[in-house]
Lab assay of single mutants.
Amino acid sequence: TYYTVKSGDTLNKIAAQYGVSVANLRSWNGISGDLIFVGQKLIVKKG
């Protein structure tokens, strides 16, 4: 599943929405910090 980042989104918010961990979101998307951008597509695997 792909999720497109919207204004106001955070990794924590997206992780909670999908029932996954922030660590997994980072791993699946090659993100090291907490910086995400509006319009960015993130890979999300269902929890």
Rank of each mutant, 00 (worst) to 15 (best):
T1C: 07
T1A: 10
T1N: 13
T1S: 12
T1G: 14
Y2I: 12
Y2F: 11
Y2D: 07
Y3E: 02
Y3R: 03
Y3L: 04
Y3G: 02
Y3W: 04
T4D: 07
T4Y: 12
T4G: 04
V5P: 02
V5I: 07
V5K: 00
V5F: 03
V5Q: 00
V5N: 01
V5G: 02
V5S: 03
V5M: 03
K6R: 10
K6H: 09
K6D: 06
S7C: 06
S7H: 14
S7R: 10
S7I: 13
G8W: 05
G8A: 06
G8H: 07
G8Q: 06
G8P: 03
G8M: 06
D9V: 02
D9P: 00
D9M: 02
T10D: 09
T10P: 01
T10W: 03
L11N: 01
L11E: 01
L11K: 00
L11Q: 02
L11P: 03
N12P: 12
N12M: 15
N12V: 13
N12W: 11
N12T: 11
K13Y: 11
K13L: 12
K13S: 15
K13P: 02
I14L: 07
I14N: 00
I14W: 00
I14Q: 00
A15Q: 02
A15H: 03
A15T: 02
A15K: 02
A15V: 03
A16L: 14
A16C: 08
A16I: 11
A16H: 13
Q17F: 13
Q17P: 01
Q17C: 09
Q17H: 14
Q17Y: 12
Q17T: 12
Y18V: 10
Y18H: 13
Y18D: 01
Y18R: 04
Y18M: 11
Y18L: 12
G19D: 13
G19Q: 12
G19I: 05
G19N: 14
G19F: 08
V20E: 08
S21G: 06
S21K: 06
S21H: 07
S21I: 05
S21R: 05
V22K: 07
V22P: 09
V22L: 10
V22S: 07
V22Y: 03
V22M: 09
A23D: 14
N24E: 15
N24P: 02
N24K: 09
N24S: 13
N24V: 12
L25D: 00
L25T: 01
L25W: 00
L25A: 01
R26Y: 05
R26L: 11
R26W: 04
R26S: 07
R26G: 04
R26K: 13
S27F: 10
S27Q: 12
S27P: 01
S27R: 09
W28G: 02
W28R: 03
W28T: 04
W28P: 01
N29F: 01
N29P: 00
N29S: 03
N29T: 02
N29M: 01
N29D: 00
N29H: 01
N29R: 00
G30V: 08
G30I: 07
G30C: 08
I31D: 03
I31Q: 03
I31N: 03
S32W: 09
S32N: 14
S32V: 15
G33E: 11
G33F: 07
G33K: 08
G33H: 09
G33W: 05
G33D: 11
D34H: 09
D34A: 06
D34T: 07
D34Y: 09
D34W: 08
D34G: 07
D34E: 10
L35C: 09
L35V: 14
L35N: 11
L35G: 09
L35R: 11
L35T: 11
I36P: 05
I36G: 02
I36R: 02
I36S: 03
I36E: 03
F37K: 08
F37V: 10
F37R: 09
F37S: 11
F37N: 10
V38I: 14
V38R: 06
G39L: 03
G39R: 03
G39P: 01
G39D: 07
G39V: 01
G39Q: 04
G39W: 03
Q40L: 07
Q40C: 05
Q40G: 04
Q40A: 06
Q40I: 05
Q40H: 05
Q40K: 05
K41H: 11
K41E: 13
K41P: 06
K41V: 15
L42E: 00
L42M: 09
L42F: 04
L42R: 00
L42P: 00
L42T: 01
I43Y: 08
I43K: 08
V44N: 01
V44H: 02
V44F: 05
V44R: 01
V44D: 00
V44G: 01
K45G: 14
K45M: 14
K45N: 15
K45R: 12
K45F: 13
K46I: 15
K46C: 12
K46V: 15
K46S: 15
K46A: 15
K46F: 14
G47K: 11
G47A: 13
G47D: 15
G47N: 13
G47S: 14
G47V: 14
